[in-house]
Design a binder for these strands. Structure first.
Lengths: 224, 224
DNA sequence: TTTTCAAATTTGGTATACCAAAAGTCGTTG
DNA sequence: CAACGACTTTTGGTATACCAAATTTGAAAA
């Protein structure tokens, strides 16, 4: 069979539309209409919706159309809180368990950022930043942590993207990543925790700011 | 429509069979055969399998029958590691955020255990123990933590059940729960962390012991 | 006897049709 | 004019049929 199932393709398309804001939060996703619109049957569309529900992007309600999730500020800040905790735990474990390949991977990413710091697409840089953090989670050697971390990054994609666009402080990011990397290479648990906290400490604040702004914008335009 | 969808009923039934060991790890779940066997069509069976896949109980392989997951010792110990971290984080947050109702709920469970300590069904006690820990996660006030915690408890159901059956040290459990509860009520972060660690510290060891025993048993009977 | 290739079977993916429940609508009645 | 109720529409849940890919099997050839 094909490498990627039709349902997964649909899910990917819908996910893109949702994260890019093309599908407004709160809008309903009727499996009949959407399926017809995309020229597929209801079966894969149904499964695609379930996939996105699992990812928290859409909400399944009994006997109701699924709707695009509208993450509240609390939900997002809860997610960031756990993301921070997971990453601190990762760093701690990585000091103990990280293989040389794990560290090399982190270094490779950091080098890439160094070289392409200027002139590269912000969205590209953003993806690289995500991959750096994912690599830390993987370096913990704990697959459950890596999975949960990835899930949270996915769910926070939109919020993080908005926050990252806002602040063009990539120089700071590079420095902070370097501090984390150095601490991990030295297997210095305390330094690693501090570096992580310094780096992600701003994240919740940034995200909260962006989300609140968006909430206000919606308030006046009446998309509540 | 009905309260519980047919797919969910099937998922519940399959989950029971898997966790109780009725469906051996590694055995394949063919959606055609299973659907016919249970007298339903493939559609809800298919969805049920996806639900269980999300829970980690079955593995979906491209172009292959789904099989019952056979969690390795590392997977389980990874899960326990995260469970412990989440619960410590919960306790820490609960010291700050727990409402009076949260604490009352914990106290209610503890009282129930006190009263029904003797003479009650071990499986019943086990469920109550799980609910105590879930309540701690909920008391953190962070829904993401509560969700992840619940997911981990579900995935660890079988391992925890085996471990709990083995050691009939419910007296110790009651005492340790009491210590946790006291620390939370006093909003004493350090004491809470210590109490959690003391309580769950044994868990990984117990589970590892049980799982290794089972692995050995499978080794000789050749179910590998 | 071994190897190879093609036909048949198995199995998951997709499309379509039908059903039942919930919500929306409109008319009737108090 | 308001409120209640029956009818229609909408929508998700389920069953069934068909398709394509992957595996298996068996026969033929080297």
């Amino acid at each position: 069979m094909i490498e990627e199932t039709l349902a997964e393709q649909i899910a990917r398309q819908l996910r893109r539309d949702i994260l890019r804001g093309k599908l407004a939060p709160g809008s309903s996703i009727k499996e009949r209409d959407n399926a017809a619109e995309m020229g597929v049957s209801r079966t894969p569309m149904r499964e695609a919706i379930r996939i996105l529900a699992k990812e928290g992007l859409v909400i399944l309600r009994p006997a109701r159309s699924p709707i695009v999730a509208e993450p509240s500020i609390k939900e997002i800040s809860d997610q960031v809180e756990v993301l921070l905790a997971l990453e601190k735990l990762s760093a701690e474990l990585a000091c103990k368990n990280a293989t040389e390949e794990d560290l090399a991977e982190l270094e490779r990413i950091q080098e890439y950022v160094d070289l392409n710091f200027d002139g590269s697409d912000p969205l590209d840089m953003f993806e690289v930043d995500m991959s750096f953090h994912s690599a830390i989670a993987r370096a913990s050697g704990n697959d459950v942590i890596a999975d949960m971390h990835r899930t949270l990054l996915e769910r926070l994609w939109r919020a993080r993207y908005l926050a990252a666009r806002r602040r063009r402080n990539r120089a700071r990011v590079v420095l902070q990543h370097g501090a984390i990397l150095d601490a991990l290479k030295a297997r210095d648990r305390v330094a690693a925790l501090e570096a992580i906290e310094a780096h992600l400490g701003h994240l919740e604040h940034d995200i909260r700011e962006v989300i609140e702004q968006e909430a206000e914008a919606n308030m006046v335009s009446g998309t509540s």
